[in-house]
Protein backbone atom coordinates (compact mmCIF):
# COMPACT_ATOMS: atom_id res chain seq x y z
CA UNK A 1 0.00 0.00 0.00
CA UNK A 2 2.31 2.69 -1.19
CA UNK A 3 0.03 4.43 -3.67
CA UNK A 4 -3.21 6.25 -3.08
CA UNK A 5 -5.84 4.11 -4.80
CA UNK A 6 -8.98 5.42 -6.44
CA UNK A 7 -11.00 2.72 -4.72
CA UNK A 8 -10.20 3.71 -1.17
CA UNK A 9 -11.77 7.13 -1.74
CA UNK A 10 -14.77 5.60 -3.52
CA UNK A 11 -15.36 3.12 -0.69
CA UNK A 12 -15.04 5.90 1.89
CA UNK A 13 -17.69 7.77 -0.10
CA UNK A 14 -19.88 4.66 -0.16
CA UNK A 15 -19.60 4.19 3.62
CA UNK A 16 -20.45 7.85 4.24
CA UNK A 17 -23.40 7.62 1.82
CA UNK A 18 -24.81 4.56 3.59
CA UNK A 19 -24.46 6.17 7.03
CA UNK A 20 -26.36 9.15 5.61
CA UNK A 21 -29.09 6.87 4.22
CA UNK A 22 -29.43 5.24 7.62
CA UNK A 23 -29.71 8.66 9.26
CA UNK A 24 -32.39 9.85 6.82
CA UNK A 25 -34.49 6.73 7.48
CA UNK A 26 -33.90 6.27 11.21
CA UNK A 27 -33.88 9.81 12.58
CA UNK A 28 -37.08 11.40 13.79
CA UNK A 29 -35.93 14.99 14.28
CA UNK A 30 -36.13 17.08 11.10
CA UNK A 31 -32.86 18.93 11.76
CA UNK A 32 -31.03 15.60 12.15
CA UNK A 33 -32.48 14.37 8.85
CA UNK A 34 -31.07 17.51 7.19
CA UNK A 35 -27.66 16.72 8.76
CA UNK A 36 -27.82 13.20 7.31
CA UNK A 37 -28.52 14.71 3.89
CA UNK A 38 -25.32 16.75 4.32
CA UNK A 39 -23.42 13.48 4.91
CA UNK A 40 -24.82 12.12 1.63
CA UNK A 41 -23.86 15.27 -0.31
CA UNK A 42 -20.32 15.12 1.10
CA UNK A 43 -19.91 11.50 0.04
CA UNK A 44 -20.90 12.49 -3.49
CA UNK A 45 -18.30 15.26 -3.41
CA UNK A 46 -15.56 12.84 -2.32
CA UNK A 47 -16.43 10.65 -5.30
CA UNK A 48 -16.36 13.63 -7.69
CA UNK A 49 -12.96 14.84 -6.47
CA UNK A 50 -11.50 11.31 -6.50
CA UNK A 51 -12.55 10.75 -10.11
CA UNK A 52 -11.23 14.21 -10.95
CA UNK A 53 -7.83 13.27 -9.53
CA UNK A 54 -7.98 9.99 -11.42
CA UNK A 55 -8.65 11.48 -14.84
CA UNK A 56 -6.93 14.82 -14.25
CA UNK A 57 -10.16 16.69 -15.04
CA UNK A 58 -10.84 20.05 -13.40
CA UNK A 59 -14.60 19.76 -14.11
CA UNK A 60 -14.83 17.55 -11.01
CA UNK A 61 -13.71 20.41 -8.75
CA UNK A 62 -16.13 22.79 -10.47
CA UNK A 63 -19.06 20.42 -9.97
CA UNK A 64 -18.04 19.79 -6.35
CA UNK A 65 -18.18 23.57 -5.79
CA UNK A 66 -21.63 23.68 -7.39
CA UNK A 67 -22.76 20.84 -5.11
CA UNK A 68 -21.49 22.79 -2.07
CA UNK A 69 -23.38 25.92 -3.22
CA UNK A 70 -26.61 23.98 -3.82
CA UNK A 71 -26.22 22.28 -0.42
CA UNK A 72 -25.87 25.66 1.27
CA UNK A 73 -29.05 26.89 -0.46
CA UNK A 74 -30.82 23.67 0.48
CA UNK A 75 -29.91 24.00 4.15
CA UNK A 76 -31.03 27.63 4.22
CA UNK A 77 -34.46 26.92 2.75
CA UNK A 78 -34.79 23.61 4.61
CA UNK A 79 -34.14 25.15 8.01
CA UNK A 80 -36.52 28.02 7.20
CA UNK A 81 -39.22 25.42 6.47
CA UNK A 82 -38.37 23.55 9.70
CA UNK A 83 -38.65 26.84 11.59
CA UNK A 84 -42.06 27.52 10.02
CA UNK A 85 -43.26 24.01 10.92
CA UNK A 86 -42.05 24.51 14.47
CA UNK A 87 -43.80 27.87 14.73
CA UNK A 88 -47.11 26.45 13.51
CA UNK A 89 -47.10 23.04 15.15
CA UNK A 90 -44.69 23.34 18.12
CA UNK A 91 -42.82 20.20 17.07
CA UNK A 92 -40.21 19.12 14.55
CA UNK A 93 -40.83 15.43 15.16
CA UNK A 94 -41.42 13.76 11.80
CA UNK A 95 -43.80 11.18 13.33
CA UNK A 96 -46.12 13.99 14.46
CA UNK A 97 -46.20 15.60 11.00
CA UNK A 98 -48.53 13.10 9.34
CA UNK A 99 -51.34 15.40 8.20
CA UNK A 100 -50.77 14.56 4.53
CA UNK A 101 -51.38 10.87 5.17
CA UNK A 102 -54.55 9.87 3.30
Amino acid sequence: MDDLLLNQFLLLGAVLFCIGVYGVIARKNTVLVLMSIELILNSVNINLIAFGAMWGDIAASVFALFVIAVAAAEVGVGLAIVLLIYRNRRTVDLDDLAQLRG
Partner: peptide, 24 residues
Protein backbone atom coordinates in the same frame (compact mmCIF):
# COMPACT_ATOMS: atom_id res chain seq x y z
CA UNK B 1 -34.52 11.16 18.31
CA UNK B 2 -34.65 7.80 16.54
CA UNK B 3 -37.94 6.38 15.33
CA UNK B 4 -39.33 2.89 15.88
CA UNK B 5 -38.32 1.62 12.47
CA UNK B 6 -34.61 2.36 12.79
CA UNK B 7 -33.76 -1.26 11.90
CA UNK B 8 -35.21 -0.70 8.40
CA UNK B 9 -32.61 2.05 8.05
CA UNK B 10 -29.89 -0.48 8.92
CA UNK B 11 -31.30 -2.92 6.34
CA UNK B 12 -31.45 -0.24 3.63
CA UNK B 13 -27.95 1.10 4.42
CA UNK B 14 -26.34 -2.36 4.45
CA UNK B 15 -28.12 -3.35 1.22
CA UNK B 16 -27.05 -0.14 -0.54
CA UNK B 17 -23.49 -0.55 0.73
CA UNK B 18 -23.34 -4.18 -0.41
CA UNK B 19 -24.37 -3.23 -3.93
CA UNK B 20 -22.01 -0.25 -4.10
CA UNK B 21 -19.02 -2.09 -2.59
CA UNK B 22 -19.51 -5.01 -5.00
CA UNK B 23 -19.75 -2.67 -7.97
CA UNK B 24 -16.73 -0.58 -6.90
Amino acid sequence: LTNRHWWSGIVAAVAVFAVMAYAL
